[in-house]
Design a binder for these strands. Structure first.
Lengths: 197, 197
DNA sequence: TTGACAAGTGACCTTTCGTTCACTATAATT
DNA sequence: AATTATAGTGAACGAAAGGTCACTTGTCAA
């Protein structure tokens, strides 16, 4: 006993919420997937909503630690090819990491119902990505790698098409390979457009 | 009697599904919002799933008629400013039309559960938009308005940031004005980048 | 006028849901 | 050794879900 069941419940909840949404998930299945009976869950959480809130706490904390913090910023690329490489590393991680995939799906499914999910979704899908690449592009402009321009506009123009293809991977995983290739092609096209010759 | 109740049910279903999702919607509330009792709904649809399927049929047909058909393509702009104007017309419509908003939300919420919703979501959010603007940019290249380049790549690069901000409007309607302004700024930046001088 | 039918009602059924509770087994504490 | 806390069980509960059915009512065709 006493074996991190609370964590296992949260993991299972993430999995089920990301597949069926909050309303489409029931405690019976959730506990069964952990090999225990549904009342056992209530020894660790007082309600379904408490599970949801704890999961959101965890997601918010995870995001803050891994994406929201300034010290976790990727280094400024040294060459156009470096930007492509760095981008593809990030993309390959985010497209294949199960936990990150499920987090995106949950935020997608609950963004209209829960305020915290709404806010985190906007960070995850829009402002967070843009902020990271604003710094990157500002750095690359200083290094003379890309033409001087509004770095936040470039970041927006760069990250949103990539984000759209990441969403496609979540929706149709069998298209993931194509999507990743398309991202790389887009990245090269982007650097060809904005890079200095 | 006999007053298009079937249509009214579908309208109410679109509204409720787009707010609470399929699983989060119940027939009692749905019928109550139409001023009738839940068994009345079953005179028009044999089950909740039948409502869902009919709604999807309707959404697919609507998309085919208004976006998927070649004859409904917007004309090729005659100037860079024309592209901005046309874009903002489309954006202002899509961001404010209740039915279109609710359709996007439903597709967002059910894309992981229902195959037809999945396919329509990809069309709606990705391939459909890209195809339309591929033709537009090809036409603009022929007119010498923008530099020769891969039109489908440009269409992708143009539509996805716009799409991301449209999703933001769905998620946080109070930010809609800002988002629309940002779309216009992006559109101008895009044409400044790819337009011939 | 009557008969048929479509549309809507209200009571009811079954299932499933989230949640509670008395109880048990185990491990740690005193 | 006795006690206490923790984690888990299984039965049960009330509410809410989707769905059925006998019945009523209004409309129109024969």
């Amino acid at each position: 006993m006493a074996n991190g069941t609370k964590e296992r419940i949260l993991t299972a909840a993430l999995e089920m919420f990301s597949q069926n949404g909050y309303a489409g998930t029931n405690i019976r299945e959730l506990s069964a997937s952990l090999g225990l009976v549904k009342s056992g869950v209530y020894k660790h959480f007082e309600s379904k909503e408490a599970i949801w809130n704890a999961l959101l706490d965890q997601m918010i904390a995870y995001y803050g630690e891994n994406f929201g913090s300034p010290e976790h910023l990727p280094p400024v690329p040294d060459s156009p090819e470096d930007l492509v490489t760095m981008t593809m590393q990030m993309v390959n991680f985010t497209v294949h990491d199960e936990k990150v995939i499920m987090t995106r799906k949950v935020l997608t499914l609950e963004q209209f119902r829960d305020d915290r999910a709404r806010n985190l979704a906007t960070k995850h899908f829009l402002t967070g990505l843009t902020e990271i690449f604003t710094r990157i592009f500002a750095g690359m402009m200083n290094k003379g790698l890309i033409r001087r321009d509004d770095p936040s506009m470039l970041a927006f123009a760069y990250t949103m098409p990539i984000s759209a293809l990441i969403h496609l991977c979540d929706r149709e995983p069998e298209k993931a390979e194509d999507a990743v290739r398309k991202i790389e092609a887009f990245s090269r096209h982007f650097i060809a457009t904005y890079g200095v010759k």
